[in-house]
Design a protein around this nucleic acid. Structure first.
Lengths: 207, 207, 207, 207
DNA sequence: GATGAATGAGCATTCATTCAT
DNA sequence: CATGAATGAATGCTCATTCAT
């Protein structure tokens, strides 16, 4: 245990990067900010990352990977039998997503705001990450459509729309209103996702 | 008329900025790229803009201003009498938004992707622009709620959700699927906005 | 005349480069040494040269070009009729070469000692310069051989040998013994070139 | 014997240095290149050499030492009785030199091209090495002059000239034309050294 | 209004060297 | 003897901005 709480230089750099990129933004952050925050020397940074962009891309990749592991990958559309199941599953998914992002707000904001702050060369990689998410959503929507649980639609367009809803829901949960209960927000955005804005004004307010 | 098609240096710079920022991104674009693209001298740039960030912020402000003029501002929620009116009005709004963005794809993508690429000092201003949009949406939603046309909800959260839907709808219309009819997309995203994903799978396909 | 003695920034940089590279050597010279010596700003350097190596290569190219213009190119082997002509022409050539190098000793030493101090990529270019000189010498030797004025030999090997003789003759004239008359040295090296070391010990001392 | 073919770390470093310095040049070679090529750790390098320059200077010193042992030192001018002896001895010397250099081409090229690539402080040491060679040549020439075997000349200048001839002869033998017989080249350069370029064109071709 | 040569603060990156193990 | 993670001084180069013309 004496050594287990001793972070490696690499870990210190990753934590510093989340902190500093998240606070000052990618372009306003100097490598010297990262290393001084991490308490390592300049050269040490380059032992673990090729350059400033590399650690940024690592953070983004890592964020997406962990987010998917804890959310989309845990909820197969094929396991849904009826509308009740669907609502329950999607509610859990919203809870997972919002909860996950609330736990690392700096990294979340960084990904939402600055994913595209990289060099033109690296943009493809970032775009792929978003496209993967959309792909997963679309697959999920197709399964539900096949099961007759949701209406037919342009699933690709719908998936992008759902992504936008998720992105701004996360933004709302993390930035705009970080104090409200996750469950409350999960319910709210689940409503929009499934039922849209219309509906009986009387009933929805009580849910 | 002899001089009317002779662009001023400022106009040349603005056009060049949309082109170059939109293609290479804000940070990868040098002032020298702008001036060479505009065909003016370095010094001329600083006759019209305080610095590189100023022209970028101008583009963003201008985009938001024109987008609102041509969309939200033209459709007062107070003029809506029933659900039929609402659907018609929102359909028009979606058409306006998507059509407008399709007409200036480079600037649209720039705003969607790189609005936050500015210095920490200027972020407030960018955030205000988004907040204004959300404010307008929220006001609209409140009016509709008062009229009993939509269900009660956390209007602020809903407004952010609608913003996310709009952002990715625009992205879809401009980047992912630039060839499909605007009307088709407007219909699609209107459905999600108003009805969500649920509903009778049979009927929705025909709308 | 008020402007004619006002050197351009580029000229100042070239002069400073000869001075500083020649004194401290290529690798020990910093770009900051060059610009401070030239009295211009850092950025100005990069207005005129791509990088530190570029100005170095320019100096070398320029040295070779001017040296050839003033020496080899002025003395065509085809104009030589007999041994007397040959001796006279070669004597002039030696005088030109040694005199030229004496006039810019720093640059000369730089080329002799540090031509290969460049990056692996740029070596080819430097080697080509030497190969061109050897090519010219070889052509000259072939013409003389055809005319029956010199003995048959492996002209390429001989040309390289003559280059070596010239290089160290220059070194001797510029570095080792910078005070002795050029004519004396020209005579001395001409003897070695044409007659070698052998010969009647009595007569050669008097020439 | 089981351990005799197991090179020490120092030997491995020296061999790696010849290989890598010879291939990439002194300045383009990193200490990390040396140690990775030698298969030892970074720290090990500094057990045997004070710094990067030290191993480079060692290589140069060692090259000069071995070259002199196997060439100049074996052929005392005092043992020469007549022109026939002289020619025979110099022929052997040329064979020794060219043969020796052919056996370690990378190190040879390194010395010819990059001896001056060291820091200003270390240049003196390199220059001394060349001066020693010239000193030996000059002594030899003086002895021969005293013996009346060669003509009188400025022996110092001649010695430098001979050095140049040797340097480029080596270059020719190792780099330009590495396949031709050493004896052929030895004969060729001996001719130039002793007889220069002039002479009966008819006879020299047959030698 | 327009120019563009000149500026220089600012920054990413390298790599020889050290030293605790 | 050997290791290799860590160091940080050193430096090449960029590019937004200025100002004399």
């Amino acid at each position: 245990m004496s050594r287990s709480n001793k972070l490696t230089s690499r870990d210190r750099l990753v934590r510093a990067a989340i902190e500093v990129f998240g606070t000052r933004g990618y372009h306003s952050t100097r490598v010297s900010d990262l290393v001084s925050h991490a308490g390592v020397a300049h050269g040490t940074f380059y032992l673990y990352f090729d350059n400033k962009e590399a650690i940024f891309l690592y953070l983004i990749d890592d964020f997406f990977t962990r987010l998917r592991n804890q959310t989309l990958d845990r909820f197969p559309g094929s396991a849904v039998a009826d509308t009740g199941d669907l609502k329950a599953q999607l509610f859990e998914m919203w809870r997972s997503i919002l909860g996950h992002c609330r736990r690392e707000p700096l990294l979340t904001v960084l990904v939402l705001r600055e994913s595209y702050a990289v060099s033109p060369d690296a943009r493809t990689r970032v775009e792929e990450r978003f496209a993967q998410i959309v792909g997963s959503i679309e697959t999920y929507l197709k399964e539900l459509t096949e099961l007759g649980l949701i209406r037919r639609s342009m699933t690709n367009a719908s998936a992008w729309g759902v992504l936008g809803l998720i992105e701004r829901a996360i933004h709302y949960a993390v930035v705009v209103n970080p104090d409200v209960e996750v469950d409350t927000l999960a319910h709210e955005f689940l409503q929009i996702e499934l039922n849209g804005l219309l509906g009986d004004p009387a009933e929805s307010g009580t849910a």
